[in-house]
Write a protein that binds this DNA or RNA. Structure first.
Ligand SMILES: NC(=O)c1ccc[n+]([C@@H]2O[C@H](COP(=O)([O-])OP(=O)(O)OC[C@H]3O[C@@H](n4cnc5c(N)ncnc54)[C@H](O)[C@@H]3O)[C@@H](O)[C@H]2O)c1
Ligand SMILES: NC(=O)c1ccc[n+]([C@@H]2O[C@H](COP(=O)([O-])OP(=O)(O)OC[C@H]3O[C@@H](n4cnc5c(N)ncnc54)[C@H](O)[C@@H]3O)[C@@H](O)[C@H]2O)c1
Lengths: 207, 207
DNA sequence: AAGATTTTGTTAATTATTTAACAGTGTTAA
DNA sequence: TTAACACTGTTAAATAATTAACAAAATCTT
């Protein structure tokens, strides 16, 4: 298995989530077209993705749900788990921390950072909030590999640089400000405003 | 100008945001490579996108910032503006409402919906919260075209259906549950968990 | 047991998107 | 006034992602 396309990785994550739900219901096998139906994509795409990770289902019975869940896990998870931090504990940051603190997965949010003295030392959803000046130290101490940026956009570029310096290996930037990272750091940016404007554009043109 | 690629639309939104910043600083012209630098993409891509919308800069001076902002506006905005609603005023929904209420654009959030009786009738960031049962009526009364879904994922499918019935033309689904809409409704889905798992995958493999 | 049916796995074709290449043209400098 | 330069606009090539096509095989039907 050489290079999995980005889009395939994203779908594998979704397949797994859907499969876990099916598994919980006691289902043991599933067809490509069933998975496709759940995610509203085509069965071919499902089969192709599954082919790419080298799994083979059984003809006429489909894919073994448990096996496929495990295989996807071996591909996208890190065995030891990965520690994550949230930088900027405002409305969005708090929502994210709260949301992820509920679920047990291989990804755990283990620290937050802010500059607001009212927040430092407190906890949000059980996760401690540190001062941004302690970032480097805490990142090292807690072996944090991923940073989720939810700071005001004016701070985005500086914070990204700080994260890179601290040795972070992946950044999820929810700021509408594009940031720059060296190529050994993986960057994913999501811009909500743009997303909404895109919807608005198609609403406008589609009638 | 025929069909603009989705990706181009998304970038136009970002160009405009960057251009507005430059404009505010008193800059009048900008080169493709300057825009590219800000967004960390290539100058060719910028030029190509701008070509697609039929704008032409002046040689050696670049693009007129004000003109380009206006043209992008004419393309992606609706003249009259578009009304938006948020369904599910929890942590994420509240963050979104608060965030967008600050900015004046052609897109305004004009109503929220929930089922929690403690929330109904109250306001969040100045926007009234209605009961989900009044959705159809309010959508019509307030001429709402877009719905942002931030309800628990178990509710996602039902709510999407409800929105479609009510005559919504665009849905932004922040639930990790894929939903189904007729093809005259534009659907954009963003799954934060998947996004984070994708970052984790590349962090894992990239060393 | 023969034939129809269903479903996978895989290669090939298609479509979408990005990147490269380069002609054309004001502007600056010699 | 001519040559070098620094841009844009556009076409062509390359890359990425999706979709179609179909052979192979397990199961079902009669
Ligand atoms: N809230 C949303 O729904 C939403 C939507 C789209 C984009 N965003 C983006 O997400 C970011 C955060 O949005 P928000 O609504 O949570 O804002 P917010 O103001 O509620 O939160 C920002 C937080 O960052 C902290 N902060 C400021 N400077 C910091 C620094 N140098 N280091 C660490 N922390 C710092 C602030 O103290 C605050 O707690 C913004 O960039 C915004 O554009 C938010
Ligand atoms: N918080 C995050 O950062 C985050 C991240 C990723 C995904 N999400 C997704 O966003 C959604 C909301 O997350 P949250 O953290 O804000 O959850 P939340 O529980 O804080 O909010 C959900 C809200 O929806 C309301 N609600 C429930 N049923 C409803 C119905 N039928 N109609 C209208 N409103 C209803 C609830 O009363 C509540 O106010 C979830 O699907 C979650 O998976 C959230």
């Amino acid at each position: 298995m050489k290079h999995l396309p980005h889009k395939t990785i994203a779908r594998l994550s979704q397949y797994r989530r859907a499969l876990l739900l099916c598994h919980a219901k006691g289902k043991t096998h599933i067809f490509s077209h069933e998975i496709a139906k759940i995610l509203h994509i085509t069965a071919v795409q499902v089969r192709r993705d599954i082919m790419l990770i080298g799994y083979t289902g059984t003809l006429r019975k489909g894919y073994n749900i448990k096996d496929l869940i495990d295989l996807i896990g071996r591909i996208i998870d890190s065995e030891e788990g990965i520690n994550v931090s949230v930088i900027g504990v405002g409305n969005l940051g708090r929502a994210i921390v709260n949301y992820f603190s509920g679920r047990r997965t291989k990804l755990s949010i283990v620290a937050c950072f802010d500059v607001d003295s009212n927040k430092i030392g407190k906890k949000t959803s059980g996760i401690e909030i540190f001062h941004i000046d302690d970032l480097q130290r805490i990142i090292e101490e807690k072996n944090i590999k991923i940073g989720i940026m939810t700071v005001p956009s004016e701070q985005a570029i500086d914070i990204a640089e700080l994260l890179v310096k601290a040795g972070i290996k992946g950044i999820l930037n929810y700021t509408p400000k594009p940031v720059n990272v060296p190529k050994d750091v993986f960057l994913e940016e999501y811009d909500m405003i743009t997303s909404l404007e895109k919807v608005a554009f198609f609403v406008k043109t589609h009638d």
